[in-house]
């Protein structure tokens, strides 16, 4: 597939926002770090605001994917059948939840655990919807796997936890930095395993469709001599990344480095040396790595329609 930057930014930004919110809610739930009420309120409000801004940026990015953004409201209609429609509903619900959570902390209401629980549920639903948009297309075998769901969940949570670590350090709440960093490490390591598993799975995939089944002629040797046009079309633009296998391989090893070992090292240094700069570098290294990871996720998916467009003439 041709990677679309609007979708890459949408999925990575809301992933970080969702992970960050889960970190905040978890902190409140078990009273992590034993914060005083004033510190706790200040941190949870700031964190909610950051999560809200990130998901709003993701929402804005998603509009750039549409041919008719002014009709976007229509996309909530088919939630019974379409995961995309479900995501369109789940994202604003999650954002509303984060807003209410932050606002009720800001106003000092006592019902925050309840709002937090509802928002956490919306957050998990949103993870499922986002991942199922891809995992539910059975023709794209690279995506049609439960690992897609696991990876979206774990990578989003890891990214959000890294951000939570940075925010805790910036807010001067040193009691939170270490537990956050440990959780971020655990999530990143877990995501490293599951993302590698999906890479291994995809490398071993055997395409279900062949040129034989595409045109229905059972002969081992079929060569396309003409695709019917020379100037390109939607079919030749949308479904192939148009890059060399070397570049794809570089991006793969690049994201494997940027998402997992490098940010972990930076974060360890940042925690040991109590350096906010290193934690800052850790989060953004991982975020850029996740952009590459998402680009590769799209580029790697091989659409069966490409079988019909092998040779111009």
């Amino acid at each position: 597939m041709q990677p679309a930057f609007s979708v890459i930014f949408l999925t990575t930004l809301i992933g970080a926002a969702q992970g960050l919110f889960l970190a905040l809610y978890g902190t409140e739930l078990i009273n992590l770090g034993g914060l005083g009420p004033a510190d706790s309120q200040r941190f949870l409000v700031t964190g909610s605001l950051v999560a809200l801004v990130l998901s709003a940026l993701g929402l804005v990015a998603s509009f750039f994917h549409l041919g008719h953004p002014e009709r976007a409201w229509r996309s909530a209609a088919m939630w019974r059948t379409s995961w995309l429609s479900r995501e369109v509903i789940a994202l604003p619900v999650f954002m509303l939840g984060v807003f209410l959570y932050g606002a009720s902390h800001f106003l000092g209401w006592s019902n925050t655990p309840l709002i937090g629980a509802a928002t956490a549920l919306a957050c998990l639903v949103l993870f499922v919807c986002t991942a199922m948009i891809y995992a539910s297309i059975r023709f794209l075998q690279e995506w049609a796997s439960p690992l897609t769901l696991v990876n979206y969940l774990l990578l989003g949570c890891a990214s959000g936890m890294m951000l939570a670590t940075l925010l805790a350090a910036l807010s001067g709440l040193s009691a939170l930095v270490q537990p956050y960093a440990l959780t971020a490490t655990a999530l990143t390591l877990l995501a490293w395993v599951t993302r590698s598993l999906s890479l291994v799975r995809n490398a071993r995939l055997k395409p279900k469709s062949t040129l034989q089944s595409a045109i229905g002629i059972k002969h081992p040797r079929i060569v396309q001599k003409a695709q019917g046009f020379m100037g390109g079309s939607f079919n030749t633009r949308e479904f192939f990344h148009g890059r060399s296998p070397e570049l794809l391989s570089t991006v793969k090893w690049g994201f494997l480095l940027l998402v997992f070992p490098l940010p972990l090292m930076c974060m360890a240094l940042g925690v040991i040396a109590a350096s906010k700069e290193m934690l800052f570098i850790a989060f953004f290294t991982q975020y850029f790595g996740l952009l590459a990871e998402r680009w590769f996720f799209f580029a790697q998916a091989n659409h069966p329609q490409n079988l019909y467009y092998q040779n111009i003439s």
Binding site: G67, H68, R74, L84, I137, F234, E238, P304, Q305, Y308
Partner: peptide
């Protein structure tokens, strides 16, 4: 149609053109 192109991804034959 909002032009999200999702239906074209979901067609294995490449029958849809934006």
């Amino acid at each position: 149609c909002i032009g999200c192109k999702y239906c074209s991804w979901a067609c294995p034959y490449g029958a849809r053109e934006f």
